[in-house]
Amino acid sequence: MSDLPVKVIHVESGKILTGTDAPKAGQLEAWLEMNPGYEVAPR
């Protein structure tokens, strides 16, 4: 599992989470399930 943060964006508000606020790569799927409305942000 990776500890690198994955940049995500809230589709409706446009809020972007990066760095320490962003979910870790190894926890991404579970985090997205618990935080509806967020998607992986385009690079």
Rank of each mutant, 00 (worst) to 15 (best):
A41L: 13
L4N: 15
V40D: 06
K7N: 15
N35L: 01
L32D: 01
P23N: 05
E12K: 14
S2V: 05
H10Q: 02
P23K: 02
W31K: 11
V6A: 10
N35G: 01
W31A: 08
W31T: 07
V40N: 01
H10Y: 00
L28G: 05
G26R: 10
P23T: 07
N35A: 01
D3A: 01
A41M: 14
K7M: 10
P23H: 01
V6Y: 11
E33A: 12
G37R: 02
L4W: 10
A22N: 14
R43K: 15
Q27C: 11
V11I: 15
D3F: 03
L32R: 04
Y38M: 05
A22Q: 05
A22S: 04
D3Q: 04
E39L: 02
L32M: 08
S2Q: 06
P5M: 11
K24Y: 01
M1P: 07
V8S: 07
S2N: 02
Y38P: 02
M1A: 06
M34G: 09
Y38I: 03
E12N: 07
Q27F: 01
P5A: 14
Y38S: 02
E39V: 11
P36S: 07
H10L: 00
N35C: 01
M1E: 13
E29W: 01
G37I: 00
L28M: 07
V40S: 03
E33V: 03
Q27A: 12
I9Y: 06
K7Y: 05
P36M: 00
A30P: 07
A41E: 10
S2D: 13
L4K: 12
M1N: 15
V11R: 14
E33Y: 05
A41W: 14
P5R: 15
S2I: 07
K7A: 15
E33L: 10
K24T: 06
R43P: 13
D3N: 08
E12M: 10
A30G: 10
L4H: 11
Y38F: 11
P5K: 15
I9N: 10
E33R: 12
P5H: 11
P23S: 00
E29M: 03
L4Q: 14
E33M: 07
I9P: 09
Y38R: 02
M34I: 09
D3C: 07
E29I: 02
P5Q: 15
R43S: 13
H10G: 06
Q27E: 15
G26H: 15
M1I: 11
P42I: 09
Y38L: 02
G37F: 04
A30K: 15
P36C: 12
V6R: 11
G26V: 04
Y38V: 03
L28F: 02
G26L: 03
E12R: 11
E12L: 06
L4M: 14
W31L: 04
V8W: 01
A30F: 01
V40L: 09
E12W: 03
A22E: 04
Q27H: 08
E33N: 08
K7L: 02
I9V: 13
V40A: 08
P5S: 15
A22K: 08
K7D: 15
P36V: 01
V11S: 13
G37L: 01
E33T: 10
H10T: 00
Y38A: 03
M34Q: 14
G26P: 06
M34P: 10
P42R: 09
A30R: 13
V11L: 12
D3M: 01
P23G: 01
P42Y: 05
P5F: 14
G19S: 14
D3E: 12
V8R: 05
E29K: 13
E29F: 01
G14D: 02
E29N: 11
P36W: 01
V11F: 03
L28S: 06
P23R: 01
A30H: 11
E12T: 10
V40T: 10
P36K: 04
P5I: 11
Q27N: 14
P42G: 13
P36E: 05
W31Y: 04
M1G: 04
E12Q: 13
Q27R: 05
A41D: 05
R43D: 15
M1L: 07
A30D: 13
G14R: 00
V8N: 09
V6I: 13
K15M: 08
A30C: 07
P23M: 01
G26W: 11
S2Y: 05
W31M: 04
Q27Y: 06
R43Q: 14
M34D: 12
V8M: 02
N35F: 00
A22R: 02
V11K: 15
M34Y: 02
E39R: 09
L32Q: 07
P23I: 00
L32C: 03
K15L: 13
P36A: 02
G14P: 05
L4D: 15
D21W: 00
V40F: 00
L4F: 13
V6K: 13
P42S: 12
P23Y: 00
G37K: 04
A41K: 04
L32H: 06
P42K: 15
V11C: 09
M34E: 12
G26E: 14
I9H: 04
M34T: 12
D3V: 01
P5D: 15
Q27W: 01
V11W: 05
V11Y: 13
D3H: 09
E39Y: 05
W31V: 07
L32P: 01
R43C: 08
S2F: 11
N35D: 00
M34R: 13
P23D: 01
K24H: 06
A30M: 09
V8I: 06
E33W: 00
L4E: 15
D21N: 10
E39T: 10
K7I: 09
A41V: 14
K7G: 07
E39W: 00
N35P: 00
P5W: 09
G26S: 15
Q27D: 14
H10P: 00
N35R: 02
E39A: 12
M1F: 13
P5N: 15
E29D: 11
G26D: 15
P36N: 06
G37W: 00
K7T: 14
Y38N: 05
A22T: 14
A30I: 03
V40M: 06
S2L: 10
W31Q: 13
E12F: 00
E29L: 05
P23W: 00
L4R: 13
S2M: 14
H10M: 04
E33P: 01
P42T: 10
P42V: 08
H10E: 06
V8K: 07
V6G: 11
P5Y: 14
R43H: 15
I9A: 12
V8D: 11
D3P: 03
Y38C: 06
V11A: 08
P42M: 06
V8H: 01
E12H: 07
Y38G: 04
P36G: 04
Y38K: 05
W31D: 12
S2P: 03
I9C: 04
L32A: 03
E29Q: 07
V40R: 07
V40K: 08
P5C: 10
S2T: 14
G37H: 00
E29H: 06
A41T: 06
W31C: 05
M1W: 00
